[in-house]
């Protein structure tokens, strides 16, 4: 068991190092911009004196590593910001203040996070169930009509971008058929039923393309596993086909699926940005697009880091699940 504990520790340290490295890269890339940050922040009509003042306020004259160090300090210990007239305290995981609204980025993210988490995790349930189910079914029904149909459907799914599926769903379901109202976010704690109904279309648009990818992977992984020697063993010992598929083939086939789920988490987050923008859901993605358009760097950096955090965590969790499923990974 100590081997497994050691593995967990190594994986955790690895995740932390990755996060730190991402923060350095993101910080450096965004703050060594070709454009003048003070000029952008202040706006096109600022006088040189005003720009100078903004630059002072943002400590833009300090070397980059000093500013990054302050940023890290703020993350760990919090920081005080003077906004000209008053001093604002930004507490522990401080990601700075928005250039535009002087709002704390951490606060801003916290208000938007529930929407995005609802969207991504709800969709994940759908894509896993739908994708893995379809994949298993089409591997099992290989060569029959079911498989051909499913293969065709998943191919269409893979080839349709999130925003195209979303647009079509919205127009057909909400516009033409009027089966559902145009989605408006309702908090889970406020009204779970409305929460689910309003998120149904966004979930589907985000999940369908991912489900298609999972169906393809699960199918090929199942087909590969079904040719392995130990499957032959159980067939040769009179174990029924259904038990062979359910107990032995599926278990082996799911390992790469877990890995893909982590790998695709990043792309799903990208899809969530599109979905939120399309359906007007007030989540991180929508806010990020807004911040990008007005070049609100602290917000952009903060959000990229938070999203990076979730992706890294998802990868670490997948690795651990993978190791639990297959202890040989730990030994390797």
């Amino acid at each position: 068991m100590s081997g497994f504990g050691g593995f967990l520790l190594r994986r955790l340290i690895g995740a932390l190092v990755t996060l730190l490295a991402i923060s350095v890269i993101v910080y450096v890339v965004f703050y060594v911009t070709p454009g003048n940050v003070a000029q952008i922040t202040c706006g096109p009509r600022c006088s040189p004196a005003q720009i100078q003042q903004v630059a002072e306020q943002l400590h833009l004259h300090d070397p980059l590593y000093v500013r990054y160090w302050h940023f890290l300090e703020g993350l760990v210990a919090g920081q005080d910001y003077s906004t000209g007239t008053s001093v604002q305290h930004c507490s522990a995981p401080c990601l700075g203040l928005s250039y535009q609204s002087d709002q704390q980025v951490t606060q801003l993210i916290l208000t938007k996070l529930p929407v995005s988490l609802s969207l991504v995790f709800g969709a994940m349930v759908i894509w896993l169930v739908l994708g893995v189910g379809t994949g298993v079914l089409s591997a099992w029904r290989r060569g029959r009509l079911t498989e051909r149909l499913l293969t065709g459907v998943t191919l269409v799914g893979v080839a349709t971008p999130v925003f195209v599926i979303g647009l079509v769903l919205m127009i057909v379901v909400c516009g033409q058929l009027q089966l559902l109202p145009f989605p408006q976010y309702v908090g889970l704690t406020d009204d779970p039923e409305q929460w689910a109904w309003n998120l149904l279309l966004p979930w589907l648009s985000l999940a369908l393309i991912e489900a298609a990818a999972f169906a393809r992977l699960t199918r090929s992984s199942m087909l590969e596993t079904l040719t392995e020697d130990h499957i032959r063993t159980f067939r040769a010992y009179g174990v029924g086909e259904r038990a062979v598929v359910a107990r032995h083939a599926l278990r082996g086939a799911l390992a790469p699926v877990i890995a893909l789920n982590a790998n695709n988490f990043g792309s799903a987050v990208g899809g969530a940005v599109l979905t939120e923008t399309l359906f007007g859901l007030p989540g991180i993605g929508q806010e990020l697009v807004h911040a990008v358009n007005v070049v609100d760097l602290p917000v952009v950096v903060g959000m990229v880091l938070v999203i990076g955090f979730f992706v890294v965590v998802a990868n670490a969790v997948a690795d651990v699940l993978y190791a639990v499923a297959d202890r040989r990974v730990v030994l390797a």
């Binding site: 392995e228 020697d229 130990h230 032959r232 063993t233 032995h248 082996g252 499923a325 297959d326």
Partner: peptide, 11 residues
């Protein structure tokens, strides 16, 4: 079978 490692389910 010949190869006892691959002939048993690893999981």
């Amino acid at each position: 079978f010949q190869d006892p490692l691959s002939s048993l389910d690893p999981y």
